[in-house]
């Protein structure tokens, strides 16, 4: 555990809590892509199956359970409790265009051809693109509430901090996970455009982020 890893995990947790509380308090999931949240729930489900096969640490187990619970709680708020506020018209990204290539790639490029490993690889690849329906939705509607952009900022910061963590671990432990690192770089690249807009529009301005 190093400072980049720990702060990355904290940012990830903060992001998920921000989104959950935003929906819970406003009783609305307007502007939120239910598809992205479903994909994240799928990411956690397929990655954390090792909860049943391996014990790593109390921290590891607790965080995995918290992520899983919050992911499914968020999905149920969007699709059940506050589904009337869900903007399915704008959430029109075709997820099969992500799921099919990601599933195919996880069969082709993995560390070992076993069910758990393939599902772990699938989750890593899927996480790198899972935010695309949300970014697509913002592009389509042309705006996002500032609280939604804070969520995206912390979510982007999380994987960016993981990049620093991997550099650190490579130097300290001589260990290099090519699947996670390449996917993490791809994932971070998707946030670059958003980071630019976040700093130039949300933090300097106020209220909603509007696209040009």
């Amino acid at each position: 555990m190093n400072i980049f890893r720990l702060s990355g995990d904290v940012c990830h947790l903060v992001a998920i809590i921000i989104l959950f509380l935003k929906i819970w308090r406003s009783k609305s999931c307007a502007g939120i892509s239910g598809k992205s949240q479903l994909l994240f729930a799928l990411v956690f489900t397929t990655r954390y199956l090792d909860l049943f096969t391996a014990f790593i640490s109390i921290y590891n187990t607790v965080m995995k359970v918290v992520f899983l619970v919050l992911a499914y709680a968020t999905v149920s708020l969007i699709y059940f409790r506050f589904r009337k506020s869900y903007d399915s018209e704008s959430d029109s990204f075709r997820v099969e265009f992500l799921l099919v290539p990601v599933a195919g790639l996880s069969f082709l490029e993995n560390y070992s051809f076993t069910p758990l490993e393939i599902l772990w690889t699938f989750s890593i690849y899927l996480e790198s693109v899972a935010i695309l329906p949300q970014l697509f939705m913002i592009t389509k509607t042309g705006e996002a509430e500032s609280i939604t952009t804070h969520y995206l900022f912390f979510l982007g910061l999380y994987r960016t901090l993981y990049l620093a963590n991997w550099v650190w671990r490579y130097h300290e432990e001589g260990f290099f996970d090519q699947i996670a690192v390449v996917s993490g770089v791809v994932q971070t690249i998707f946030y670059c455009d958003f980071f630019y807009l976040y700093f130039t529009r949300v933090l300097r301005g106020s209220g909603k982020m509007t696209l040009p």
């Binding site: 890893r5 590891n60 260990f175």
Partner: peptide, 10 residues
Amino acid sequence: TKLGYYKDEL
């Protein structure tokens, strides 16, 4: 350099 995966990561 070992190639591998960080199963302790989230």
